[in-house]
């Protein structure tokens, strides 16, 4: 009995591995909007920047490409396969990030995160496979690792999960409504609607790559990150790249909250590296005017504060974008 029950499922590993197709919609959207400034980031961007306020302040067409739960691997794919494909390409791309995200290529690159990267992948993307590591899900404990090793069927599992979602949609909506329901679900459960003090984003990352790894050495890690290829693409396409490090939720007294004590040294090295490559860095982490009152859940900005934050953001980054000068 045990041999049959444990042995037969091993056959599941045979057969083609399914993958989500490339999504053309962001390409079409950018073609339609023809923005001069594109912002890329995760929920830090989604909860901070109000696109209409930014358009008004900058007087330019701006597009916000926020993907909650994303990190540098997906930003690289967005830049390479979406933004850089525009003719003409946007003048400036601003990437909002936290902590060490730029030099942690495996951060949010497995499991569900990996699935959300696939619609931005054109074909095999060998660089992503090389830098972001295994395409599989990071095991949830030793037992899970053993099960994954014995039964490498995670992709089939993801496909089965997708089918359950698809059946659920089929039962309640027509295919024309799928996208609308999906998009509305993203808004409903998005970071703007989280309870204060709840950080679902961070909870999901239990066991995955930490944002503040001990002993993270910029010089040693940057060569293995997505930064060099991102800078290369920007150089080729004549795009000005601006990296904006957001301030993580400060303590009530205004002092740094989650920031690692070694952040200062990291930022110095990062700034030097970027400026040498012709890109810019704006470091918000020590800005005194970004106070705790701005924040909603975790490091997210509260929805009501987004217009005010957007103004603050543009005051800081606007001159940098317009003049191309360093701060």
């Amino acid at each position: 009995m045990a041999v049959l029950v444990l042995g037969l499922p091993m056959l599941l590993k045979f057969g083609p591995t399914p993958r989500r197709p490339f999504d053309e919609k962001p390409l079409r959207l950018l073609k339609k909007e023809q923005p001069r400034v594109v912002l890329i980031g995760d929920s830090m961007l989604e909860t901070r920047i109000d696109q209409s306020v930014l358009n008004r302040l900058s007087g330019e067409r701006c597009s916000v490409f926020a993907q909650p739960g994303s990190s540098s691997a997906l930003w690289f794919l967005m830049l390479k396969n979406i933004v850089a494909q525009q003719t003409p390409p946007p003048r400036t791309v601003i990437i909002l990030f936290r902590s060490r995200q730029l030099t942690l290529p495996t951060h949010r690159a497995e499991g569900d995160y990996r699935k959300s990267m696939e619609p931005y992948m054109r074909g095999d993307e060998p660089l992503v496979e090389k830098l972001a590591g295994s395409s599989g899900r990071k095991p949830d404990g030793v037992l899970d690792a053993v099960v994954q090793a014995l039964y490498p069927v995670d992709r089939r599992r993801e496909q089965a999960q997708d089918k359950v979602q698809a059946w659920s949609l089929d039962l309640v909506a027509s295919s024309r409504e799928y996208e609308h329901i999906h998009n509305h679900a993203k808004v409903v459960f998005g970071p703007k609607h989280l309870r204060v003090g709840t950080a679902v984003d961070e909870q999901k990352e239990g066991g995955a790559t930490s944002l503040d790894p001990d002993g993270h050495d910029f010089a040693a890690e940057v060569g293995k990150s997505f930064l060099p290829p991102m800078l290369e693409i920007a150089r080729e396409k004549g795009i000005q790249l601006v990296f904006y490090e957001v301030k993580r939720r400060p303590k009530p007294d205004g002092s740094a909250g989650e920031e690692s004590p070694t952040n200062g040294a990291y930022d110095v090295a990062l700034r030097a590296y970027l400026e040498k490559a012709g890109a810019r860095l704006f470091d918000e982490t020590r800005e005194a005017d970004v106070i705790v009152d701005f924040y909603g859940s975790g490091d997210h900005v509260a929805p009501a504060k987004m217009p005010e934050y957007t103004e603050l953001f543009w005051r800081k980054v606007g001159p940098l974008v317009e003049t191309g000068g360093a701060r």
């Binding site: 009995m1 029950v5 599941l12 569900d112 949830d140 404990g141």
Partner: peptide
């Protein structure tokens, strides 16, 4: 009883492999 138990266990195990959640 024995074949039914084997079949049920097999179906449940395959179900676990293919439908379990990402995180427990």
């Amino acid at each position: 009883a024995w074949p039914v138990a084997t079949l049920l266990s097999l179906v449940l195990f395959v179900g676990i492999l293919l439908l379990r959640s990402d995180t427990t």
